[in-house]
Design a binder for these strands. Structure first.
Lengths: 196, 196
DNA sequence: TAAACTACTGAACGTGCGTTCAACGTCACC
DNA sequence: GGTGACGTTGAACGCACGTTCAGTAGTTTA
């Protein structure tokens, strides 16, 4: 999980993974069938964990638009790093999760529009998809954000530090009162992570 | 340039590239020194082309915030696809171009803020960096946008179709009059690409 | 005309990879 | 105590890769 996004699939050898785990290369194949089987197992694990956290976040009704940002606080860095990698590489499990997130984001947005929290759109499906791609795309480029701001967006501290900017950028989507409310929610969340 | 982003670096063989070009594997090495030399030559070419287009776009003062969107209309798909790939893989040439784009974006934004076109921020550096990562990150996830909307954001048609959503999403950053003005500019640009 | 250079080939080399497999120890179960 | 299943090893196999190199043909230079 840590080697694949860092070194790439082909450059990551079964031997290296086995060495990390303190076992023999043969055992890795014995358990996962092949190198690709191991990658698929990683996919399943990461996507599963992501899904869990996402469900938990939605149950708390801790959802705003983009719903993702609320989730991101609670998903650990390596998981996000792997998910970003899998998205760029087009792994089917990651594809499905992306589509699922778009569908859920759409549902959430529609509800929020009905309640007057989020502004309507001539093409809400496209807007939601683009928004999801923007947010997840930024996580895929986390290293560049880190180099230019000094904080890694894949850490809770980073997310807390970057949220004010994200809220400014997306502010046009929200009703003013609602924006003030979620800004306050985020501020409280951020302070819990990085005490002022 | 087309194989690296599509198949990955390691999965792309010199033999396959040579076959595409109708030459022998030896010749590829003869010209570029090594496989990595070829990759660096691709980097240089793409980054160079990108920089040219970017400069041209700036000279026309066809710059809005995000300055990138205006450029994107004019950069071809394969170039953007390669740049997105290089960004995710952290090639040094792509890193440098990203940082350069952030610096220029910052300059443009500051000018626009002074003119009252774009709203000010408590942390304009961070906001601009995040904005750039969002836009370029979306291009790295172009396949997911295509799957969910039916249009490839890396084509002029795709950009034209997605721009209304992008303008909605970023609308909070702009002065209202200015927003109406760039919406009109984009509409004209889009119609030139995809006649209504 | 001779020499040097350049573009290019195709066979060969060595390496590191994913994968296979026979063998071994350790349990649980009958 | 015997038997089978399981986790594990390490040596070995075969393959595909990046790279090398001697050689050829055509073109430029002197």
């Amino acid at each position: 999980m840590s080697r694949f996004p860092r070194d790439g699939f082909a450059a990551t050898t079964i031997r290296a993974i086995a060495h990390d785990a303190g076992v023999s290369p043969g055992l890795v194949v014995h358990h996962f069938g092949s190198k690709d089987g191991l990658r698929q197992a990683c996919d399943r694990y990461v996507v599963g964990k992501f899904r869990e956290t996402k469900l938990a976040a939605m149950e708390e009704e801790n959802v705003t638009n983009p719903g993702f940002a609320a989730t991101a606080f609670q998903v650990s860095g390596p998981l996000l790093r792997y998910f970003g990698w899998a998205l760029v590489r087009g792994h089917s499990a990651a594809d499905e999760l992306f589509d699922e997130m778009v569908r859920e984001g759409l549902e959430i947005t529609r509800t929020a529009v009905d309640k007057g929290m989020v502004k309507d759109s001539a093409d809400i499906e496209t807007r939601t998809t683009v928004q999801m791609a923007l947010m997840l795309g930024m996580t895929a480029l986390h290293s560049h954000v880190e180099r230019n701001t000094g904080v890694d967006p894949l850490t809770p501290e980073g997310m807390a530090r970057l949220t004010p900017s994200l809220l400014e950028i997306f502010s046009g989507l929200f009703d003013e009162d609602f924006l003030a409310r979620i800004a306050e929610t985020y501020r409280a969340g951020a302070e819990a992570i990085v005490p002022a």
